[in-house]
Amino acid sequence: MSTIPLDELYREVILDHHRHPRGRKPLAHPDVEAAGLNPSCGDEVTLQLELDGDRIADVAVLGRGCAVSTASGSMLAELIRGRTLDEARAIAERFREVMHGEAAPEEVDLGDLEALTGVRKFPVRIKCALLPWVTLLDDALARAGEADRD
């Protein structure tokens, strides 16, 4: 009988992001706002982006979620601030592929996000880890592309 690897789910870096999440301050003048919902638990996340041309000048990740989604959102705020929209999209796509098991974590450079790959051992929690990133990919970046063209 295997014991479940709890410490792989709640690694120290994840708990640190959870206790001290980055990017929690609402932006005064967001160019883009997108909301995501995890229908299985009802958790909601709101992403705000401030754009400078095609670059993400600032980002906020708002809403109350579990430790996994909060840490993931915090990492998102750190990772995409200052990146171009295309770079942010590439990170999000890479992370999604890894979490869906379509790419191995060692094949790609995920930075801090690597700590979240332990979540794959808890299939029902993968959605928690992806919530902010799916919101970024499916909603925020699409809106940002339009805002950038305007």
Partner: peptide, 19 residues
């Protein structure tokens, strides 16, 4: 958070519902 709660107590054999 309830989701963390349910995951962690499950490792102790305790089945509760979260959400």
């Amino acid at each position: 958070h309830p989701h963390d709660m349910a995951t962690i107590v499950d490792t102790r054999g305790v089945a509760v519902r979260a959400g």
